[in-house]
Amino acid sequence: MLLTVARIGRPHGLRGEVALDVRTDVPADRLVVGARFATEPADAGPLEVAQVRDAQGRWYVTFAQVADRTAAEALRGVALVVESDDDEHDDDGWYPHELVGLRAEHASDGRVLGEVVGLEHLPAHDVLVLREPDGARTLVPFVEAIVPVVDVTGGRVVLDPPGGLLAADAANLVVSDETRGDASDED
């Protein structure tokens, strides 16, 4: 199975250096001169790190196969991947394929809120892509306060969503407003 180490971002300068969106907890161990990475899409690589630097927590690399800014721009969005070792698997980390298909349950009463259909990596944090029972697609911030339990072996995630996050919440608000309107008409 392939593990994404980083995604190539914008070019930096004219000599082929690129910024990386790092996805590994150990970039100093993975991003070293001479490291070779397979890529997704595969036809963009393999790429070999020729230079690397960390500037205030932001990682920049130059690849041996990239000579200028134009070539660097062509790599934007390419993922650097490595074959994963099962013993590297973190108890608090999950691969996207492990999350897809999990049932989403509400923390307070266990009712089914939908099914996880994907994981997206946004700049602030990852989000679970949830398909609600009515078919609505909802992005749920993948943070412990909202997703306190991930039980891959049990086939579920537990959500404690704030009001208004789910499409079903909006439908309930409409029903509540209509009900409240009917009640005020009777007065």
Rank of each mutant, 00 (worst) to 15 (best):
V81E: 05
E73M: 09
G45R: 04
F37T: 08
G110D: 06
E73K: 11
T138Y: 01
V143D: 02
R30H: 10
R15A: 15
W94V: 07
A168T: 08
A71V: 06
A145W: 12
H97E: 13
S84T: 14
V117K: 04
E88P: 12
T138V: 12
Y60K: 07
Y60H: 14
A6Q: 07
R58P: 03
V117Q: 05
A55P: 02
G101T: 11
T24P: 04
H89C: 05
L14I: 10
A136F: 02
G13S: 09
V78F: 11
S84Q: 13
P148C: 06
R36C: 09
V78W: 13
F63M: 09
V127A: 07
G13K: 08
A38T: 12
V5P: 06
A183G: 01
L122C: 00
H125G: 02
F142I: 05
G57P: 10
R111P: 00
R111L: 02
R10K: 15
R23I: 13
G164Y: 03
T153M: 05
A183C: 03
A104N: 00
A72T: 00
F63A: 03
E83R: 12
A6V: 08
V129D: 00
P11W: 08
D134S: 10
G154E: 05
A71S: 14
L102H: 13
G13A: 08
D54E: 14
G9L: 13
G163P: 12
V175P: 02
V174S: 02
G34Q: 01
E178A: 12
A67K: 14
D29R: 15
T70Y: 13
R15Q: 14
S184C: 11
L47H: 03
F37I: 05
V5L: 12
P161R: 00
V174N: 01
A55Y: 14
V32D: 09
V175K: 05
D43E: 11
G101H: 09
T138M: 01
P96T: 04
G9T: 06
H12I: 06
R111S: 05
Q65W: 12
D126C: 06
V52Q: 09
V33H: 09
V112Q: 12
L166N: 00
D86N: 09
L80F: 09
G164A: 00
Y60F: 15
V61M: 07
Y95R: 15
L166E: 01
P27M: 13
F63D: 04
V158Q: 00
G77S: 10
A168K: 01
V33S: 10
P141S: 01
R36Y: 02
T39E: 04
A72H: 01
D169E: 03
R30F: 08
T153R: 11
L122K: 02
E98F: 09
S108A: 15
P162F: 02
A104S: 02
D177K: 11
D187T: 15
D134H: 07
T62V: 10
G163A: 15
V175Y: 10
T70V: 14
A42Q: 06
V52L: 09
L14F: 13
F142C: 06
V22E: 07
E120S: 03
L99G: 01
E132A: 06
P162M: 05
Q65Y: 12
L3I: 07
